[in-house]
Write a protein that binds this DNA or RNA. Sequence first.
DNA 1: TTGTAGGCGTTATCAA
DNA 2: TTGATAACGCCTACAA
Lengths: 343, 343
Amino acid sequence: MSVTIKDVAKAANVAPSTVSRVIANNPRISERTKVKVREAMDQLGYHPNFIARSLANQSTQVIGLVTPGSSDVFFQNPFFPTVLRGLNEGAHEHQYALQLVTGKNEEDIYNGVVQMVQGGRVDGVVLLYSKVEDRILSYLQERNFPFVMIGKPYKMPESITHVDNDNIQAGFDATEFLIGIGHERIAFVGGDNKLVVTVERLEGYKEALKKAGLPYHPRYTVHETFLLEGGKDAICALMELPENERPTALLVTDDLMSLGVLNTLSELDMTVPEDISIISFNNVLFSEMSRPPLTSVDINIFQLGYEASSQLIKRVEHKDEPHHRITVPHHIIARFSTEYVKK
Amino acid sequence: MSVTIKDVAKAANVAPSTVSRVIANNPRISERTKVKVREAMDQLGYHPNFIARSLANQSTQVIGLVTPGSSDVFFQNPFFPTVLRGLNEGAHEHQYALQLVTGKNEEDIYNGVVQMVQGGRVDGVVLLYSKVEDRILSYLQERNFPFVMIGKPYKMPESITHVDNDNIQAGFDATEFLIGIGHERIAFVGGDNKLVVTVERLEGYKEALKKAGLPYHPRYTVHETFLLEGGKDAICALMELPENERPTALLVTDDLMSLGVLNTLSELDMTVPEDISIISFNNVLFSEMSRPPLTSVDINIFQLGYEASSQLIKRVEHKDEPHHRITVPHHIIARFSTEYVKK
DNA sequence: TTGTAGGCGTTATCAA
DNA sequence: TTGATAACGCCTACAA
């Protein structure tokens, strides 16, 4: 079929093992035979068979990517392409390939992970999410299989290598930004409150209010999913408050939601930022394409991915690496959805 | 290390080959031993090793995904997540996994493909693009390696299995839609004119003009890349035309570009659709999130992906399948960026 | 119906 | 510095 190490060996008049050593660039092979073997390889158009190599080595140079619950939804999230870019870059630098776990629901994905792991298809795994009570996480820990998480583990963060933003600080900074331009009635519009990110950003929000001596009103806190329509109901409810209680600014924990919010506001005939300011999170590609362009907390999604695959490869190659937490910095990109409050 | 077929064999008091046959559910194995073996498997927590199986079978159950030139840019394209979803679904139905070719430039990707293919990492490949003079395409054809293309091959479409929209028809329909609501000066804002899609949609546009007896003005045709800022210059140039020559409608071949166009127009103080109508292509997620929501030609991106992986698997499993062209239907989603022309 | 043995293409150990 | 040879875990004639 394909040209193998044996064919090369014959052509070069050496043993297969010698060819193997040439491939590995083993220093104890004479330059002369190296050259000879390499010539033969070129002539025959030899390429090593990864599968055979994997079997012999017990290592595949492949990283598995695990998406949360339903991949479908996750793929839609503008977070995904960018984090994938980062993962890709980190993997590519070390000659690793990326493989996706396929599946439409949690059960599917769980089985996919088990197959990947036990089937020896991948050397390690990146979890692209963090959630409470995760079977996959427990499974990987039990088997002591190398993995890295993007986001903050719900528990035992010190025994799980993970890369994450300081989301408390990010929530704090965003809120302080609004306070700094004069806002006092600030509402928090967050995603699924089972996600650690949401909880943390909310915490930062509260801290900033406290520090500024502003009251925290639970009714100023709404949780919606990250999906598109999410925002609508939440916003309407807030905007129906009497004028002197209505928030003058919104902190929205996801750009996609912000888009929804923007549309809802426009339907309610409210102008951003004149009537109400918005600060958003993630700073994905289209944050600057909306009208008005969104002030958003850039969380360096690319770097999140890049660090994740780099760290994972480190773990795979040195199984005794201690667990790390990598904190990726964030910074606010001020655009045109925020403005000094009108008194 | 891990539990293998041999361990199971011992535990069940049979030969390894018997275990192997049980896994394959070979009918010539007695029910009794099947049960016995399966029990042993469960007890030991056996999972077949994919790598070993791949080596023995010469088949990996993995599909390689090849992105155009720079993956980075492609990942950003909102086309990508949806097509990936489709690919994922098609692959998952047949228990195939997806692997990405990593690389940042054409050279990188080419090498990645060669490694994947010669390295026996994948059973087949999906090309997520179609372009002129493609090394990767030639390479795959030369080696007679199973692949499927999304988009229309630049040449020899009858000897390449591909899944695509009828883009000429789509361009035609979109243009006719505008003509149908009274527009006569319609400009074509297209992406990279080396891409087959662009060329075809342009062709459809011309045909529709012709059919309606409207003149085709080359200056009404602008080509920009699919990138965000793309639109700006092109649009300004058009809008600087004297009022009675200025187009009243734009046909923009990509939603992302449309977003850019929308912003540019808003900077020029032109209102959509009152001052100018826009019909867009692809109908990606955020088409309805823009302001105004875009009238867009839905090209069924999901199905494009789904068909691609399904077809590929068919080819992989029956090497003698004849080449197909799968045409995925499109339809216009009318939203609020198009309006009857003001006379 | 089941077992034996060789092979898939590498790598790694041990001799030479 | 190189060559035999035995793994790696599974599949599949061929034999029994």
